[in-house]
């Protein structure tokens, strides 16, 4: 979406938008004036954090941790999907076993 729609959906002004892009709180692709839904949601998160009392120093700290958290959630989810797709017998057998002889 374009800038105007973004500002309306996010409910922020141009000044805030520019400042947040500068600060790196919004992704670099926002500089070109093309915005994704996730950028709107991120802007709203920044507003929410401000509402609950987080100051300018705290916002990037929280955003960074949230991003790491989502990265972890994604990785964990992929592993779970992969493991659950295995037949029942396999799941217990993923660790390696010693040899046997005849």
């Amino acid at each position: 979406m374009e800038t105007r729609e973004f500002l309306s959906a996010a409910r922020i002004d141009v000044g805030a938008m520019t400042a947040w892009i500068e600060a790196g709180w919004l992704a670099p692709h926002c500089k070109s004036g093309e915005f994704l839904d996730i950028d709107v949601a991120r802007a709203q998160l920044i507003r929410d954090l401000t509402d609950i009392g987080v100051n300018d120093e705290g916002i990037p700290v929280i955003l960074n941790l949230v991003d790491q958290l989502h990265g972890l959630r994604r990785a964990l989810h992929e592993v779970l999907v992969a493991v659950r797709a295995q037949p029942e017998a396999r799941r217990g057998g993923i660790p390696s076993r010693p040899s046997r002889s005849y």
Partner: peptide, 20 residues
Amino acid sequence: FYRDFADADGGNPYSSSAGF
């Protein structure tokens, strides 16, 4: 909320693998 977009399948330009 932000979490609905961040966990979505389309990928997340903000996602960080620094945590692992």
